[in-house]
Write a protein that binds this DNA or RNA. Structure first.
Lengths: 250, 250
DNA sequence: CGTGTCTTTGAAGCGAGTCAATCAGGGTGG
DNA sequence: CCACCCTGATTGACTCGCTTCAAAGACACG
């Protein structure tokens, strides 16, 4: 996964050279989806700068004032919210082309932490200027709305998972979702390297890390997966999918 | 709760007379929040019509093409998603001033069902015209974005609840959330009538209906609540809140 | 080559689910 | 107006899946 993406010269976590949306290979997965030439040029002017975030560093954290959205350019992030009493919940994992910070619009403050799970780069999208430009360009406005709406749909899917699935179904859904998104980015649909720990997977899926580990082992016993630490290979895709369709209980 | 709202003459589920946002008593809770006179007048022209939905009827259902958003004017709704294998999850309960249908923007189709839990009225907001108008009015654009973002934040809160809370904590969080929203609408902060069944509460909270019922009974034993069927009175608000702050395990 | 972090695996305990019986209301029709 | 039915709520007894606690193993990194 990481081998395809040449690491840029390590820089301070400050802003670096900008790269044009119009020539970005992610443009069909990211905010510019479906935009035409003149609009793309304007978008280039909007996306102010890139920023490097090293593994383990936070791109932003809950409570910080909201200035900009971020599009993941390379790398991998998790977002997590925490309650007053210190409970912690991973609310999502973001890969290239996905937006971070949408939650912050509601209160002009970030409501979650965004942590890089590997050395990453993001494009900074000043929110005030995004609103301006999307008043001018129907396409941009519409694709921005679609992205927000898609996040809502995704969250509803996670609620379904957390509310009514067994551990093995959750893990299966998680892996299928990951591989599908990786495939859309040109990676193998059957082989992946997890960027997150068992504990982070468990937090996302509402399970304890031991349960995640046991479930991986079980799926390996059943010949559905090959699990070597964070290297996963899907041996029986149909079998994995079947876990979701046969809700054995009903 | 229902006694405050005079029922309009029962009408067919078709569209009925329109009511202006500019003179709506919900305007500070709904889409028009913070808008000034000339903008409100334009919004009046946008919100095409009201529609009556009887208890048990669906306002829309998953798969239907997306035309309009709906603002709840009176009454109470639930939204639920279901997976291919027939699993069902209540993703939210909506009351006066809240928007329905935001999920549909992403794919031009509704992705969940919206069911009225009591006789209700909604204002229909044609989406294409909302986009038009929000290109013209910064205020409208911004408040629409805030509403979508708030939905994302809410969903993250539910994920935290489903992922890491015990049954009694979930029920406490649910009741506190409901009463807070009811209070913002002028109802009592300590006394409410549930519009949904134990099963619907359970689905929302990731619990079985028996567990919801047992939890209510337990909270009544402890003197925190008075529970008589769907009539709930909060006797010890601090005690209810404490359930959320003392995560007894940590 | 040690050290710390992450992962795996086992054994025991518990919280929520399941199954089943009873009870309470609300509405309907005789 | 009452008997009846139907849906929803409550409660109990038992089961099961996941968590908890604990120990050992596997890598990655300095």
């Amino acid at each position: 996964m990481e081998s395809d993406i040449p690491s840029p010269a390590p820089a301070a976590s400050a802003t670096t050279l900008k790269v044009a949306c119009s020539s970005c290979n992610l443009r069909e997965l990211c905010l510019p989806v479906g935009m035409s030439r003149p609009e793309l040029d304007r978008l280039d002017a909007l996306v102010a700068a890139r920023r490097t975030v090293k593994r383990g560093e936070r791109l932003f954290q809950a409570g910080e004032p909201f200035q900009a959205l971020y599009a993941v350019r390379t790398g991998f992030f998790k977002t997590c919210v925490s309650s007053e009493d210190g409970r912690d919940q991973v609310t999502g994992f973001q890969m290239a082309g996905e937006l971070l910070g949408l939650d912050a619009i509601s209160q002009d403050r970030h409501t979650c932490d965004a942590v890089a799970l590997e050395d990453s780069q993001v494009c900074q999208i000043p929110y005030a200027r995004l609103e301006e430009l999307s008043r001018e360009f129907t396409e941009l406005q519409h694709s921005f709305h679609k992205i927000m709406s898609r996040e809502i749909v995704r969250d509803h899917g996670v609620m379904l998972l957390l509310g009514s699935m067994r551990a093995d179904e959750r893990v299966a859904a998680f892996l299928l979702n990951l591989t599908q998104r990786l495939q859309a980015r040109g990676f193998s649909p059957t082989s992946l390297v997890l960027r997150m720990t068992r504990e982070e997977i468990g937090s996302y899926l509402g399970l304890k890390l031991e349960t995640v580990s046991r479930t991986f082992s079980k799926l390996q016993e059943d010949g559905v997966l090959e699990v070597r630490q964070r290297h996963i290979r899907i041996l029986d895709l149909a079998g994995l999918r079947a876990l979701l369709n046969n809700s054995s209980a009903c």
